[in-house]
Design a protein around this nucleic acid. Structure first.
Length: 468
RNA sequence: GGCGGCAUAGCCAAGUGGCUAAGGCACAGGAUUGCAAAUCCUUGAUCCCCGGUUCGAAUCCGGGUGCCGCCUCCA
């Protein structure tokens, strides 16, 4: 039985979807005003891993992810650049999709853009006003948190303690209480041509209401799983609960999954402070990008990951070993091996599932895989595999890869089967030097190739190269 | 000020009462190689500190120290 840590109960719970084997899942997506940083992306890798595991275990999925394409930051960025809002958000949406592809993240069934669901948000806000959970003030509409007794529960905060905290926003004179949050923001001059008409006048929706409206539209008033990173627990997800449950009178979400932060230099990444890296900054080669995916996958999602160049290099080494193993399995051609691989495969599968079932304990699940990796390496070096047993092992590693998603080919790798003439020529000259036993010449050429990013290895089958 | 998390070998990271404390990376020694790469073999920690509970604790309790996060836009 799959156990998941539910933020609401702060404990692991047996996962039982509302409707049999169907899982309805909502993930808070990006605000598309900038390139995503690797912290953002790591959260989507975790969601992808979760989805893959659910599929592996026979669940069917309906997954919705929002794209926040109107808010303070998108408007500010579009003003700063002097481009229309839609142009800006389309550009970064495209960038986001490319990052997802680079990281082998499967698509959601629906990416819902906020600007295409303004009517849904307005009607949700109207319901909240009618029911007395929200009030209009100076053209804006605010949620009255005093009306929602369980406000703060998701984050383990109690209202009184929060009010003592003193760090409240004093700019919002229009609100009855400093903690009330905006559902609808009245148009201001900075918004330019970004506004929608409503019964409260021109304006735009608040951020929190966007997720409630779109999640419920596509997944129903109560759905199974809602994901995000830990920073969204409060206030964003708490506000979603307050809005949705006040409007429907029903529970909003059954399981809340939150990913711990990925840090850089020991502290959190944030676009606002500049302490961040994008995928293209850390991923100069396909190997870097795939190593990043491995790194995220192999670390437990509720454990913080401190990203450094060093851990990325370690992940690259690990991936080299794994891809090397798959290559070796593919080339086994023997009928005389004696290894009994099926018991090992069955045992590994069982352990893998047992550990993934434990709140997606990928650290252990990957270790389980490595037990078999080590065993397989032993068989290979002893020549103990038949073609059939090698294929069985290869297929099983691909089976695990259905969940882990670490073995894949990036678009830019497709055309990598040949080298430029210059580089091919260098390799030829080195081959000649080696035939002549001119080792110093050969070694020098090897260094030149390495400087061009080409690593050379002389194998029994001849000289091979790869980009590093 | 309030709330929460973490501290395990050089680095990353499992394990939450009991066999020899998983796994990965790095390093070192050996085999192989023209030299490398790859591959194969071998080697490392008593678990932040102090006290307590227990036959027995990395694992539970109390205290301390350090780091991180949330309470405000934020994956």
């Amino acid at each position: 039985m799959l156990q998941l840590f539910n933020t609401m109960s702060r404990s692991k719970e047996t996962f039982t979807p509302l409707n049999g084997k169907e899982v309805r899942l909502y993930s808070c997506g990006p605000t598309v005003y900038n390139n995503a940083h690797i912290g953002n992306l790591s959260t989507y890798v975790v969601v992808d891993l979760f989805k893959r595991y659910l599929s592996y275990r026979g669940y069917s999925l309906l997954h919705v992810m929002n794209l926040t394409d109107v808010d303070d930051k998108t408007i500010r960025a579009s003003r700063n650049e002097g481009v229309p809002l839609a142009e800006l958000t389309q550009r970064y949406t495209a960038g986001f999709m490319k990052d997802l592809e680079s990281l082998n993240i499967g698509h959601a069934d629906n990416y819902t853009a906020a600007t295409e669901h303004i009517d849904d948000m307005i009607s949700l806000i109207e319901t909240l006003v009618e029911k007395g959970f929200a009030y209009e003030s100076e053209g804006s509409v605010y949620y009255k948190i005093a009306m929602f007794p369980e406000y703060g529960k998701l984050a383990g905060l109690d209202l009184e303690g929060m009010l003592d905290g003193a760090r409240v926003d004093n700019d919002e004179y229009a609100k009855e209480s400093a903690r009330d949050f905006a559902l609808w923001k009245a148009w201001t001059e900075e918004d330019g041509d970004v506004f929608w008409e409503s019964s409260w006048g021109r304006g735009r929706p608040g951020w929190h209401v966007e997720c409630s409206a779109m999640a419920m539209k596509y997944l129903g008033e109560t759905f199974d799983v809602h994901t995000g990173a830990v920073d969204l627990i409060f206030p964003h997800h708490q506000n979603e609960i307050a809005q949705s449950e006040a409007a429907t009178g029903k529970p909003y979400v059954k399981y809340w999954l939150h990913r711990e932060f990925l840090n850089i230099g020991g502290s959190k990444m944030a676009k606002s402070t500049g302490n961040m890296s994008t995928l293209s900054e850390i991923g100069r080669t396909p190997a870097d990008i795939k190593a990043f995916r491995y790194l995220v996958v192999a670390t437990h999602y509720r454990t913080g990951l401190n990203f450094t160049e060093e851990v990325l290099e370690a992940a690259k080494s690990t991936m080299r070993r794994l891809t090397n193993l798959l290559d070796r399995l593919e080339t086994v051609d023997s009928s005389g091996g004696a290894a009994q691989v099926s018991d090992s495969i069955v045992r590994t599968r069982q352990l893998f599932i047992e550990h993934m079932d434990d709140d997606l304990n990928t650290a252990r699940a990957v270790a389980d895989m490595f037990e078999l990796v080590q065993e397989t390496e032993g068989w290979l070096s002893q020549g103990a595999l038949t073609t059939e047993s090698a294929t069985a092992l290869y297929d099983f590693f691909q089976e695990l890869n259905q969940v882990l998603g670490i073995f894949y080919t990036l678009p830019e790798e497709e055309g990598e089967v040949s080298l430029s003439e210059d580089l091919a020529d260098l390799i030829q000259r080195r081959e000649q030097a080696r035939k002549n036993r001119d080792w110093s010449e050969a070694d020098q050429l090897r260094d030149e190739l390495l400087a061009e990013g080409i690593a050379i290895k002389d194998t029994a089958k001849g000289t091979e190269w790869e980009r590093v």
